[in-house]
Design a protein around this nucleic acid. Structure first.
Length: 432
DNA sequence: TCTGGGGTCCTAGGACCC
DNA sequence: TCTGGGGTCCTAGGACCC
């Protein structure tokens, strides 16, 4: 059996933990650059604020209705997520941290020793008590069905019914559950597939489970569709993946605070992303063999259509060195760069990840041009300084704007809450 | 004026290799 | 007249997830 624990309205709930006056009020959290709505409290959902909606389109409505608006504060959400996941790891045999607010639990063998419904209820209560974050739990024989059970648990909770836990452990429960879920709400069915399914007259998860295998293979992405059907029918096709060793790629990408046309500005952003990517690698003990740089023009503009340009480079051996990564990134940018365009976004993506230092396969001519051991020391010093005095305190020169200039690429964040749990200067204050 | 960021998996064509 | 089979690397894009 699999469990799926999902935090309710996670970012909005995080904001509430340290600002209890927000309890009962409509709260939304915005994406970077205060661009889109990416999280909503139940009250905000009830007002009709949609997920992913551009902020500038709903700003007025929200001001009128007294909605509390927060810029995203990933430092806070990341730390709250770690607390939730840590607790789950204490109580479940194996945990897959599926996203910042969700985890799959491997409950194999537990059926014999526990009543899963009451066990899941206890977990739910404990997470709430220890972290302040509300969660729902779905339990079922496959991951896809556990997701579906979780959705039902949430649905019931919103209607003031149920315990926040749904367990599907026999055939009849499975059938009933499938009948209650619309096909577009099944995990793995996106907009495109939903349209095809509707056109074919398939409305519910139950009907989807009954379509022919050949049809699914043809219309739902080949083997992906076939697996989806299996899982809905109760045959597990995917296990719990415990740790991050399986990570295949890592990216740092950002929209600019405003559109950019000058090479120096975009290069500054790319160098900044490369440095952040290096930090992420070192924190996770990884090194990369491939680096991709991309830049994008405004995809919402009427013309011209092509909006993304990229270049991929093979690094000389796997590296986690910021200087090497930055050099490669700027070389990639030279290749991807089309002059005369207006860019709104840039990113650095690292692939071919391996454990740093493991095997350390060099090139034919050795790593004469590559960084030596002293550079490892330099990176450790860099990380230590930035950890202590704030990120960006020490940077490669390419990531620093010219003297007296501001970072042209800096993002907008007008209404950010404090880093309540990770910065001494921003801790909660208690007045007596 | 203003439209996120970080992932996974799959497909496909061209260049090049043996 | 007739033109193999099996790879890698690169670029690009589609579809899905949170």
């Amino acid at each position: 059996m699999f469990g799926l624990v999902d935090c309710t309205n996670f970012y909005a709930s995080c904001e509430r933990v340290f600002r209890p006056e927000l309890e009962g009020r409509a709260v939304v959290v915005l994406s970077n650059n205060d661009g889109c709505v990416i999280a909503r409290s139940q009250e905000a959902k009830a007002l009709g604020v949609r997920m992913g909606e551009p902020y500038f389109q709903v700003r007025e409505l929200m001001e009128r209705r007294g909605v509390v608006v927060c810029s995203s504060n990933y430092e806070l959400y990341g730390d709250m997520s770690r607390r939730v996941m840590w607790y789950l790891q204490q109580v479940a045999p194996a945990v897959e941290v599926y996203s910042i607010d969700e985890a799959f639990l491997d409950l194999a063998g537990m059926t014999r020793h526990f009543d899963l419904a009451s066990w899941a209820g206890d977990v739910r209560g404990a997470v709430r008590q220890r972290t302040g974050i509300p969660v729902c739990v779905g339990v079922a024989p496959t991951k896809t069905l556990a997701k579906l059970a979780n959705r039902l648990a949430k649905q019931d909770a919103h209607q003031g019914a149920g315990s926040g836990v749904v367990v599907l452990d026999d055939e009849q429960q499975r059938r009933e559950a499938l009948g209650r879920v619309a096909v577009e709400d099944v995990w793995g069915v996106g907009g495109r597939s939903a349209a095809k399914l509707h056109a074919a007259g398939v409305r519910t998860a139950a009907e989807l489970a009954g379509v022919g295998d050949a049809w699914a293979r043809k219309n739902l992405g080949g083997v992906v569709g076939a697996r989806l059907l299996c899982e809905l029918r109760g045959f597990s096709c995917a296990g719990v993946v415990v740790e991050d060793e399986a990570r295949k790629s890592l990216a740092c990408t950002r929209s600019f605070g405003r559109p950019l046309t000058r090479w120096e500005d975009v290069a500054g952003a790319v160098a900044t992303h490369a440095a952040r990517a290096g930090e992420k690698l070192r924190r996770q003990g990884l090194a990369a063999r491939l680096l991709t740089v991309f830049v994008e023009t405004n995809r919402f503009a009427a013309a011209p259509p092509p909006h993304s340009f990229s270049a991929q480079l093979t690094l000389s051996g796997a590296t986690d060195d910021t200087v090497s990564l930055t050099r490669a990134a700027l070389k990639g940018l030279e290749r991807a760069w089309r002059p005369g365009r207006t860019y709104v976004k840039a990113g650095v993506v690292l692939d071919g990840l391996e454990r740093a230092g493991a095997a350390a396969q060099g090139t034919l001519f050795g790593d004469a041009g590559g960084p030596g051991p002293a550079r490892g020391e330099l990176m450790r010093a860099l990380d230590a300084l930035n950890g202590r005095y704030g990120s960006g305190t020490v940077r490669v020169a390419a990531a620093v704007p010219g003297p007296g200039k501001a970072e042209a690429w800096a993002m907008r964040r007008e209404v950010k809450s404090p880093a309540f749990t990770t910065k001494w200067g921003e801790l909660w204050e208690v007045r007596c």
